[in-house]
């Protein structure tokens, strides 16, 4: 692409990848300090683009807080109303809980007294989107994560690999640069949880049965109201009376999870988002 001064690219990352991030890189060029997150899977940036369902929205004085759930967890968004960001303020006024949204935002970081690292998102754009947009973002984000994890594996075997050598394997310069930075920043990045994430999300090909069962399962979970969530077995007992089996239930649960409708409160216990 052209070499003119470019806008900071928005990184498509899952909330889990961002949540596992503990390191940043500070660029001090031309006396302007810019702080970039470095994820363990090699995504480096200070702007993110993601899709999910709004599970919480609160407004206090000039501050609006949103929690947006993607299939892997939640993004935390804090908006401070200022004169220059009234367009975003207007967009935030149009979205509400349980809506699917696409968010583009800048990242900011802080570390708690206990030493825990947090990433907050300052939104630039928040708009309601369709189910298809949500699924599109998920499919592409899985693909990009998969590619970066492949590079991280190569780097774990041969840490001396150069960006040029990685590009010659079919990856982009951007992917190569990010992964090399992550590999040197985190001495041994633990990638297992992100790999497990990928396995659990290869779920686009869902059967018609699961799609038909989805709403029924969601109603069961919502109606249960049990503190800590309804168990898998309880849901299965209810649907098996109508001739449905565990395979169909698994698919329906995966689908609801990936759409941000439910989450696993404890192992095999589900609650509405």
């Amino acid at each position: 692409m052209a070499n003119e001064k470019r806008r900071e690219p928005a990184r498509w990352v899952f909330s889990r990848e961002l949540r596992d991030t503990t390191l940043t890189h500070v660029d001090d060029e031309n006396d302007v300090k810019r702080e970039y997150f470095i994820t363990k899977a090699g995504s480096v940036g200070r702007r993110v683009l993601f899709c999910g369902k709004i599970t919480q929205k609160s407004e206090e004085n000039e501050t609006i807080k949103l929690t947006v759930a993607d299939p892997t967890g939640a993004f935390y968004i804090t908006f401070f109303s200022k004169d220059f960001n009234q367009d975003t303020r207007a967009e935030l006024g149009l979205v509400s809980e349980n809506q699917n949204v696409m968010v583009v935002g800048r990242t900011s970081f802080f570390t708690s007294n206990e030493g825990k690292f947090y990433v907050n998102i300052n939104p630039e754009t928040v708009r309601e989107v369709r189910e298809e947009d949500l699924e599109y973002w998920k499919i592409q984000t899985v693909a990009y994560l998969k590619r970066r994890l492949s590079i991280m594996h190569e780097l774990s075997k041969s840490p001396e690999l150069s960006a040029e050598q990685i590009v010659s394997l079919g990856f982009t310069e951007d992917e190569a640069a990010g992964c090399i930075m992550a590999n040197s920043a985190y001495s041994t990045p633990a990638l297992g949880p992100l790999e497990d994430l990928l396995i659990s999300m290869n779920s686009y090909h869902v059967s018609e049965d699961a799609i038909n069962l989805k709403d029924e399962v969601l109603d069961i979970i919502k109606e249960s109201g049990a503190f800590g969530g309804i168990t898998y077995q309880e849901i299965l007992d209810k649907i098996s009376k109508k001739g449905k089996d565990s395979e169909q239930l698994d698919e329906a649960l995966n689908l609801l999870g990936s759409e941000g409708e439910i989450y696993e409160a404890e192992k095999r216990k589900f609650r509405p988002a």
Binding site: M1, E132, D133, Y136, I139, V142, A143, K146, H205
Partner: peptide, 27 residues
């Protein structure tokens, strides 16, 4: 810089999602 002059624009639909999943799965 380089831009894209569009000749056809469509919303992403379910069929596109299947196609993308296949491309990405094939990597």
């Amino acid at each position: 810089g380089m831009g894209l002059r569009a000749t056809e624009v469509k919303l992403i639909e379910k069929t596109d999602l299947g196609e993308l999943a296949q491309i990405n799965g094939g990597e």
